[in-house]
Nucleic acid binder design. Structure first.
Lengths: 207, 207
DNA sequence: AGTTTTTTGTACCGTATCGCATAAAAATAG
DNA sequence: CTATTTTTATGCGATACGGTACAAAAAACT
């Protein structure tokens, strides 16, 4: 029942791949400065097809923001799973984020920073929906880091202290995204990130 | 010789006040999403007058970015001069920045964050001039904080350690700007800022 | 008063924008 | 083979955009 052959003319494009192409355009130019013609050119589709598949420009953008947050979540999660201990794991995660921000990964070969921080932020004041989306991305980041610290420290840190450290690290991460977009090198950013982790996360017995 | 009466028809507007009005528009909407019609409406001028006085839209924006950086510099400098000691001064500065970011000052009654971080950043990838301007703003921030720390610690910190701490604080500040634009309250941000200073700046004998 | 200089206001130009209407194309269902 | 469904492609349509031409207006200079 799931591979029911569809009735009409088949699509010429792969939806997933197309969304990735759209993401690149928004990531580079932001929301306001991106035109549907640019997206059409990047995807090889024409505007009516885009509209039929993904809705309005705003719909597309919000879809892309979610998609980016998901990608980021899994990507950073995988990076943090490559070692153990609070500080090592956090350092791995920050380093992976910096690689992404500076265009060292296959997800994005250009130094565009974090899509949400770089582009969604600008629109957040004009449009409540955008602001909520930004807030959601930030909250997700906070929670992700907090749960990692909570898991690794196993009650040796108080919950409020822990959440605060997580927010500090998220602040750092967002600052690093900005510098990546400003053209700073991954090496400099990684050095900053490492020392930031050392300062922000208290040294426990096992680390 | 300085108050030479000018030859032609006198201007109906005050240039300084007009630039402030233009700044508000760019601060709220960013560069791409701001139209000259919006600026014309906000200032009460028409487009030809705007163009004659301030040049193209891009010229205006770059002028405004510089203006904002200058304002920020004097505003934060004054805030940091209201007390003594590294940490107290830094905390005053961060608190003042948060007030500005969240719209608690007369400079801006709306929670728009930092103009450069909030709006310039998005354009930084497309246009090299914008990227350089962003880089300049960041570098200026780094140097400002570093010189404050240097002055207050009087050689008790190494120069590289000092610069690193300054960059950490700048990262934090930029992260706070983002959260301000996302709608976070000044109280929460100030609590975060205070603890961040405590963690990032080493506790010396006199503080 | 008449000339010159500068600013203002209206109106325009070419282009770009988003979204959609409409018809051709490509598949399945009967 | 015909009807139906879905996607593609062309193209329109109304609006918005940045920038400027041009003439009227308002001041000083002669």
């Amino acid at each position: 029942m799931k591979t029911e052959t569809k009735r009409g003319r088949p699509r010429k494009f792969d939806e997933d791949k197309t969304l990735d192409q759209i993401m690149q355009v928004f990531w580079k130019n932001g929301y306001a400065a991106t035109s549907l013609d640019q997206i059409a050119e990047a995807t090889g589709l024409n505007r009516p097809s885009l509209y039929a598949a993904f809705g309005s420009k705003k719909d597309m953008y919000l879809t892309i923001v979610d998609r980016f947050a998901d990608r980021m979540h899994t990507y950073l999660g995988a990076a943090g799973a490559r070692t153990t201990g609070v500080k090592p794991r956090l350092k791995f995660i920050l380093a992976a984020a910096i690689d992404l921000y500076t265009g060292q990964t296959e997800l994005n070969g250009e130094p565009y920073g974090c899509l949400a921080i770089s582009t969604l932020q600008t629109e957040a004041v004009q449009d409540a929906e955008f602001r909520e989306a930004l807030d959601a991305v930030i909250a997700r980041m906070d929670k992700g880091i907090a749960s990692l610290i909570r898991h690794e420290t196993q009650g040796s840190m108080g919950e409020t202290e822990l959440k605060e450290a997580a927010q500090h690290l998220a602040l750092i991460l967002h600052g690093l995204s900005i510098r990546a977009r400003a053209g700073e090198s991954p090496e400099v950013l990684k050095a900053l990130a490492e020392s930031a982790v050392d300062k922000i996360v208290p040294t426990t017995s096992e680390s």
